[in-house]
């Protein structure tokens, strides 16, 4: 029982570290696309780790928490994808250090074909 609790606590701690890193990335990154990248990747993993840590702490909530994790897995990447796409479609500037922009290349390709 005690060991399970300790394992759960460590998983929750790891999750909160990831969440913290994600919020740090929101401040540190140069433009919106990088910020979305940092925010989503870290916060998805952080949320999943935190929730699965709670499974170890109180096993009665396992079903609800699994459903929550599934929801986070479905919605979080999709919403950030849509945010980035919307930002790209209103032609928000990328940072100067950007090497490649596949979406613009793709759209140009489609326009050439037509």
């Amino acid at each position: 029982m005690e060991t399970l609790k300790i394992i759960g606590a460590f998983i929750v701690l790891a999750g909160s570290i990831f969440l913290f890193l994600g919020s740090l990335g929101m401040v540190r990154m140069p433009d919106l696309y990088n910020r979305i990248q940092a925010g989503t990747k870290a916060s998805t993993l952080g949320t999943i780790l935190t929730l699965s840590g709670i499974i170890f702490l109180s096993s009665g909530w396992t079903g609800k928490l699994v459903i929550l994790i599934l929801f986070v897995l479905i919605t979080n990447p999709v919403s950030s994808h849509i945010l980035a796409r919307a930002a790209h479609s209103v032609k928000l500037k990328l940072t100067d250090k950007t090497v490649t922009d596949k979406l613009t290349e793709d759209e140009e390709l489609i326009n050439e074909k037509q």
Binding site: F71, I74, T75, V78, H81, I82, R85
Partner: peptide, 15 residues
């Protein structure tokens, strides 16, 4: 429209 959004919406709307 975005393919990814369309596919995930098909899963999400019934839920």
């Amino acid at each position: 429209y975005s393919e990814i959004l369309g596919t995930s919406a098909k899963i999400l709307i019934p839920l």
